[in-house]
Structure formats: C-alpha cells, structure tokens
Design a protein around this nucleic acid. Structure first.
Length: 811
DNA sequence: TTTAGCATGCGAGAT
DNA sequence: GCATGCTAAA
C-alpha cells in the first residue's frame, strides 16, 4: 500500500508545494462521490491496474482522483507521475480537473501530456543517442510526403503507380509497430513494389541529415534508446514511479513497448480504457494491448467501471445488444440507476435528402419540446455520421431552413495551407537553413521559381553542401543567378536577403516576435497575395482592396489568429515548438448550434439528443472496412456503432435511407445489419404522422415497419407548421438584430418596396460556404442564388453578405 | 508560369 | 459529386 509516512519526499516537491492546508483539510474530499469500483481504481496504487471503464462510467473522474490520491497521500511527487493521453485536449482536461481537485494549479506535473509531447521532451534530452541534435525539427505529414516524393523520384520509381502517400502510409505503419528499417519483417519486404524497406532506410537517413523527426519517430526513437541503454532506462524507471495511461485500447505497438519498458521493475502502471471503444485500428491501435494486459502484467488488478451516469436504461440496453455481437471482449455490463427513458428511435427514409429534411424538422420539434419531451437546446444535439461526406446533405438542409450548426473536425487549424505557409516563413526566420520550409515558400507567393530554377538551386546546394538559402547566396556571388528566369533572378535573392534580416531580428531580444511575424507576412508579400492586384489608379482612387478569391477572407482571418496565438509565447521558437497546441480553433458564439461530426470525433463526448443517420450496409458498416479487414473490420465498425449510441443521454435516433447517391450514382441501400442487432424491446419504430404511401423495403428482418416516400401531403404537413417553428421564430428575432454585415446603402438604392429582404434580384452576394453568386429570386427572407461555383441554391438571407462589402482588412 | 480541361479515385484523422 | 493532380495550351 501507499506510504503515508513519506512526507519528506512530499514536501521536497519543489515546483508545486501542495499546501499543508490541502493535506490537513477534510480527509480526501476527492474520494467523495466515488462509487465502490471507482474507489477501488483510485486506491489501488501499487502494482498493475487495468481500469475497464465503459462509456459514461466516470473514467476521467476516477483517473484524476487517482492522481490527487497519489499526490495528497504523499505517495508520489508531482514530477514522479507519468500520465499519458492521446490528445492535447485530454491532457488539458486532466490538468484542469486535477487542479480543481487539489485546489491549485498543477504546473508541477511536467509529465502529464500526450505520448508525443512527452517523447519530444525526452528525445530532446537524448537526441544524440539516435544521431539527432536536441533542436531537431518535427515534420508534419506534408513535409514527410514531400521528402518521400523526392526519394521516389530519385529511385526512378514511377511515382504515379507508387505514390508518395502510399509509401508514407507504409512507413507510418512500420513505425507504429516499432519496426526500424533493419527489422522490416520478410512478410513486408514486398511492400511498395519491393522497394519499401530500402526507401524506408533512405528516408530515415534523410531525416537524420535534416536533423528532423516525424511523429512516428518520436516514439520509435525513444523505444530504440531505452532498448539500447539500460542505464538510462533504469534512471527513468526510478524517476517515473507511477504511470497512468488514458485510452489504453488506442495504443499502438510502439506506445505499448515504450510503456512496458518504463513500467518494468516497479510495475506501477494503471491503464484505463474500454476494449469496446477501440475504433482506431486503422491508425495502428491494437485492441490486443488491452485484451492482453493481464498477461503482460501478471497479478494485475482489474477494476470494472460499469455503472453508467450518462444514458437512460433503454439506450444502454440498445448499445449492449449491439456490442454483444463482438467476440473476444473483456466483457462489461453497463447498468444505471437512472430512468428508463425513451426507447431508441428508429426511422427509415426514402433517400438521404429526405433523411436530412426529417432530422432538421425533428431537431426543431425537439427544440420546441414536442412529443411529451422537455425542450432541448440545439447545443445539446448532435448528428454523428460514419463518413464526413454524409454531412453535406445536412448542411444543405440546415442552411435552407436557417438552422444554426457547427461542424467539428474539418481540416485542423494548423494544417491549413496558409498556416503552414506562414509557419514555414517563421521557421526560416528562426533557422534560415531549414530547407523544407524554404522549399515550401520559395515560390509562395509566386516568385517565378519553376522546376528549372529550383534545380539550379538544388545543384549548387548539393555541390557545396549548402542549405537552399546559402545556395542562393552562392549563386548570387558568382553571378550564376543570371541564368534564371527574369522574375526569379531578382525575387529570389530578395527573399534570401529578407530571410537573413528576419533572422537577425528573431535573435534580437529587443524585437517583439509578434511584430516580427506581422512584418514577415507583410514584407514577404504573402498577405498581399490574397488580394487582387490593384492598378495604380485604383490605389490612387482609394478603392478598397478586393480579395483574390472566396477563400481569401477566411485565410487572412486564420493568419490573424495565428499572430494572436503568438502573443502567448516568449519568442517564435517557443511558438513553433508548441504549435500543435493551437489546434483548437473554436470560438464559441452565443447562438445555440447543432453539432455535426463523425462518429470517430464523437468519442468521449455526450449529448442529450443524438442522431445517427446513414445506418445502411456498405456505408455503416463501411464496405471498405469489411473488405480490407474482414471480421476484424466489422467488429471495429460495431464498436463504432456502440460508441455512437452511448453518446446519447436521453434520446437516440437511428435512421437509414433506402436510396442514396454514392459517388454520384444512385444506389438502393439495405438497412444496416446493426439495426437487426438492436434489441426490439428497446426500440421504437417511428413513422412520421401525416404520411402515406408506405412502401415495404422487405430487405431486412429488422423491426422496421416500412419506408415512406416523400409525398405532397408530407410537404404540406411540414409547411403548415413552419410559422410556428423555432427556425422561423429565430429568423424573426435575428432580423431585428444587427446580424452579419449589412450591405452598404449605396449598393441597394434600387431595393423594391415590397421586398423585405435586403437583397434584390441581380445582386452579387457572398456566402460563407458557397462563395460568390447572384440573386435570382426573392421570397421573403429566402433567396434563390445562382452561385458561381456551387450551383443554384436556396438560402436564408442572413447567411449572405453583399459581395464587395469585404469588411476590414487584416493587419 | 499559369490555366483550363480531363482523368482518377474515394474511411474514420491525433500527434 | 467533388477534389486532386496531371497534361496541354496560352
């Protein structure tokens, strides 16, 4: 058991002096409200512990209480606990919650973080053991692919048949499995047209030359180091006396090995996870790790968290019924003391559009509080789809009816083009020899550098083993620069000069890095490249600058945010280091919104009302998963279904469509086999009232009554109610508020008197999602717009801005 | 170098 | 249906 007499060590904890007050306070308040299972998970401190935490069973509560327990009993000092998560979000949440339990910040927990963040920290200390310098750069996926492309071309491999992305996938896979180039198993030797292993070795060599590591390397290198240096490993084993791992079912082989190495000796490792929620097999996660835990760590305590605090009994029963179809589970039975609640609701639709329309109406109805249910705010509703392309139908529909929504999980902030471009500039300012950064931006904005010019720079660089920047300087020095195209001849040396000047400023402590960043984006012409070129007359006349395209305003907005994010850091270097932390790009607006996201993105979240559309064989479960992984793939899909259902607190609505457009082709769809697996007693089959024309699909033995066809009557029924709908009322209130930018007076002198809309036929407008277009019809607040790129759509006026009213210019 | 026009291929996506 | 990435033409 834990040593309560270790108060010396406890008080010696330098960074966080956990106050005596906390110690002396009521005995362990963090244990209050824990159920017996959670309590066991918290108090079993010594030896291996497997905390099997079903969905909604208070896993994070137990995990954070465990940390608090370790600290407040003096069993461990903050810096002796290694606590690993997968995402920055999870790490942050854990930090905050531990801080709440302790009643003070936890800066003193330096080893609470993601696998990658912790490995970076360790690897910087011991980089030389794998031939890197401690200031190595971390490549993003884009850099990796670019590098591999070069290697493929150099190896005279047909890049079309053997694309760099594929190689990246293969190498990533090896790294996930902790396979170094010399250890590629013979079964994999044929990969990438038999050249895979050799290219892998070359790639690793290139990384070393560049003093760089990719994400996979961070773990792989640490495993390599620990395997080769017993003394070092011992040191860390003594250092990290207690190990905690979140989402253990998502660990890959490399992470598993790393943990095993570190836990060896004391075996004080507590892993938390749920084999039924393992949905990341495709990116290397091995469910086997959690299934095998008791074998790997003999004598492990297994604690099952089965009391669910999230969902109603019906929802839990439905989820349990589905997941029971999987073999080889550790087995858990979720139960609740809560109410029975609504049965899981199931409804079939004619096609995907119909499904989206119904969901839209249902959301409005639930917002109003019909069907004997309390009203639910859109903030508390989510639509969870299997594949992101399913979102389109919903977005289109919601835009039409003016239902506010947010999409989670589009392209991440830091992987947007403009952010990466800007970051490349910053990287060059910090280190002008960063060739990958140079490669990225040498022709961004266009500086007339094509393949020919690039080749000359490369050639000189390799002749004299210089960086690309230095190579340009060298070419300038002996006049060879003149052999380049006219534009490149002047622009490229100009760029290099700028880089060196920025570099000076970056090292100057007097110079604010935020201002420097703005200066860089401005001077490089990068900002300007998002505006249309203006003639001298236009400038003289003081015409406002015009954005280059529909994307430009958003991109400039992102850059603004990037600069803002810089403020929180000491210098550019520090920022680059921590850039992955700015991924959260969410600025919450006051307006309640429905959430639209993938099932994968929804793991760990919960919503009072959840919609699960598209339950059709081939879409969900995905055909591809089944083709490629067979039974294993199907089981992972089934876990995904389980994750989906268990996100719901009060209402869970599953739906499917009989027809769906797949890659532009209409296909008739069969209801998902998972629908058959829903226990009938816990399912209510919905048939929207006022419908006729039932048409039996007859395709499934499921408890589905039949399909309904979108009919005139249905149309009429939904129309009649529209004035009472939340959407309509919302429009009324919004019309009174100064909402989005109003079109300027001058542009709308010709508004006809009867049109209440601020727009009239022929106006040029801009829409956040569909871009520019022209108004072709006006019906109250609903406008028909012929979009330049997106075709003709009906949109509510408040989603439109008059084109040309571009707004303020960043910087 | 830039661009329009056609072929291609398609899941989920943290770090 | 759409984005991506190539070839051909400007």
């Amino acid at each position: 058991m834990s040593s309560f007499d270790d108060s010396d060590a406890f008080e010696a904890a330098s960074s966080v002096s956990l106050s005596q007050r906390a110690m002396a306070a009521a005995p362990r308040p963090y244990l209050d409200g824990l159920n017996p299972a959670q309590r066991a998970a918290v108090e079993t401190l010594e030896g291996p512990v497997l905390m099997l935490a079903g969905a909604g069973t208070g896993k994070t509560k137990a995990l954070t209480a465990r940390i608090a327990h370790l600290l407040l009993t003096g069993t461990a000092r903050p810096n002796e606990i290694l606590a690993v998560t997968f995402t920055n979000k999870a790490a942050r949440e854990m930090k905050t919650r531990v801080a709440t339990l302790l009643g003070q910040p936890v800066e003193g927990m330096p080893w609470l973080g993601t696998f990658h963040a912790i490995c970076v920290k360790l690897l910087r200390r011991h980089a030389e053991l794998v031939g890197l310098k401690s200031n190595f750069t971390i490549l993003d996926t884009d850099d990796q692919v670019r590098l591999m492309k070069q290697l493929i071309v150099a190896s005279e491999i047909d890049e079309k048949r053997w694309p760099a992305r594929m190689l990246a996938g293969i190498i990533d896979n090896w790294k996930n499995r902790a396979i170094t180039p010399d250890k590629v198993p013979s079964a994999d030797a044929g990969a990438f047209n038999r050249r895979g292993p050799e290219l892998y070795a070359q790639y690793q060599q290139r990384l070393k030359d560049l003093n760089a590591a990719d994400f996979g390397d961070l773990l792989l290198h640490m495993v390599t180091i620990f395997q080769a240096h017993d003394d070092l490993l011992d040191q860390y084993r003594r250092w990290f006396r207690y190990i905690l791992v979140d989402e253990y079912q998502d660990t890959n082989v490399a992470q598993y090995l790393w943990l095993r190495l570190l836990a060896g000796g004391h075996n004080n490792i507590c892993v938390v996870g749920d084999d039924d929620q393992s949905i990341y097999g495709w990116r290397g996660a091995e469910v086997g790790n959690i299934l095998r835990f008791e074998k790997d760590f003999p004598g492990a305590h297994v604690v099952r968290l089965e009391q669910n605090y999230r969902s109603t009994a019906h929802i839990l029963a439905a989820a349990s019924g589905v997941i029971a179809g999987n073999k080889g589970r550790l087995g858990k039975t979720l139960w609740t003391e809560g109410e029975e609640g609504e049965k899981v609701r199931l409804i079939g639709h004619w096609d995907g559009d119909e499904e989206a329309r119904w969901v839209g109406e249902e959301i409005e109805a639930m917002q109003r509080g019909t069907r004997g249910m309390d009203p639910i705010s859109p903030d508390h509703m989510a639509i969870l789809v299997r594949a992101s392309h399913q979102m389109r139908a919903f977005e289109d529909r919601f835009l039409t009816i003016g239902l506010p929504y947010r999409v989670i999980g589009g392209p991440r902030f830091y992987e947007r083009m403009e952010i990466r471009d800007a970051m490349a500039y910053f990287r060059l300012a910090v280190s002008p020899t960063d060739d990958l950064a140079m490669e990225r931006i040498i022709n961004v904005p266009r500086r007339g550098v094509g393949p020919a010019a690039m080749q000359k720079i490369y050639d000189r660089a390799s002749e004299e083993s210089l960086s690309l920047t230095a190579s340009v300087t060298s070419l300038v020095r002996d006049g060879k620069i003149a052999t380049m195209g006219g534009k490149a001849r002047t622009k490229v040396p100009e760029l290099v000069e700028q880089i060196f000047r920025w570099h000076e400023l970056a090292r100057d402590p007097e110079c604010s890095h935020v201002e420097l960043a703005e200066m860089i984006l401005e001077e490089s012409g990068y900002i300007e490249s998002y505006f249309q070129p203006r003639t001298k007359e236009e400038v003289d006349r003081g015409d406002p600058p015009k954005y280059k395209d529909v994307e430009a305003p958003g991109r400039l907005e992102n850059l603004k945010e990037l600069v803002k994010a810089l403020e929180g850091f000491e210098n550019l270097q520090g920022f680059l280091e921590h850039v992955s932390l700015i991924m959260d790009n969410e600025q919450e607006s006051e307006e309640p919104k429905v959430t639209l996201m993938t099932l994968h993105a929804a793991k760990g979240l919960e919503f009072p009302a959840v919609f699960l559309p598209g339950w059709e064989d081939g879409l969900f479960p995905s055909q591809r998963a089944m083709d490629e992984e067979g039974m294993k793939g199907l089981e992972e899909e089934r876990r995904l279904a389980y994750v989906g259902i268990t996100r719901a607190e009060r209402v869970c609505t599953i739906s499917f469509a009989g027809n769906r457009r797949v890659y532009g082709q209409w296909q008739s769809q069969m209801p998902s086999r998972f629908i058959d697996e829903l226990p009938e007693d816990h399912v209510e089959v919905l048939t929207p009232s006022g419908l006729h024309g039932h048409q039996n699909m007859g395709a499934s033995a499921s408890p589905v009554a039949g399909m309904m066809r979108g009919s005139d009557l249905h149309e009429a029924a939904s129309r009649a109610d529209v004035y009472n709908s939340p959407g309509w009322r919302r429009l009324q209130t919004n019309a009174a508020k100064p909402g989005l930018r109003q079109p300027s007076e001058a542009r709308h002198m010709t508004i006809d008197a009867e049109a209440e809309s601020a727009f009239s036929i022929g106006d040029r407008v801009f829409h956040q999602k569909f871009g520019y277009g022209a108004v072709i019809s006006v019906e109250g607040d609903k406008l028909g717009i012929a979009f330049d790129k997106a075709g003709t759509k009906h949109v509510v006026a408040r989603f439109l801005v008059a084109a040309g009213a571009a707004g303020d210019v960043p910087f």
